[in-house]
């Protein structure tokens, strides 16, 4: 039974059961902290409204495409290069295939 639950990695082991027990302990601790929290919070009242420079915001949802804006801006040169390689033009794709084949041939024949 123990073998079924454990993965030996050579350096150590991975046991989902121990992880689950640790996760349960963490959830219980988090629940305890939450239970001891402030009680004046009320769902559905204006306490839930976001505060954006004092302005009332009608649709406060941040769209999926706006997530990681900073990351994508910082990586823009790399991402644009990658996007360029994925041109959608089949000639380019066949060209890449030829390049890879050339490199593999050189590596294996030289």
């Amino acid at each position: 039974m123990r073998e079924a639950l454990t993965v030996l990695t050579g350096q150590g082991y991975w046991s989902p059961l121990i992880w689950a027990a640790a996760a349960l302990g963490t959830f219980l601790l988090a629940g305890l902290l939450w239970w001891r929290g402030r009680r004046e919070y009320k769902r559905g009242t204006e306490q839930e409204l976001p505060f954006v420079s004092g302005e009332r915001v009608e649709n406060p949802r941040v769209g999926a495409l706006h997530l990681y804006w900073g990351l994508t801006e910082a990586l823009r040169p790399l991402l644009e290069r990658l996007r360029g390689w994925h041109s959608g033009v089949v000639n380019d794709y066949a060209g890449w295939f030829v390049v890879v084949l050339g490199v593999v041939l050189l590596l294996l024949l030289l």
Binding site: E3, A4, L5, T6, P16, L17
Partner: peptide, 10 residues
């Protein structure tokens, strides 16, 4: 497969 990985691994 996540909870009993050893069973499938072996």
């Amino acid at each position: 497969l996540g909870l009993v990985p050893g069973f499938f691994l072996e």
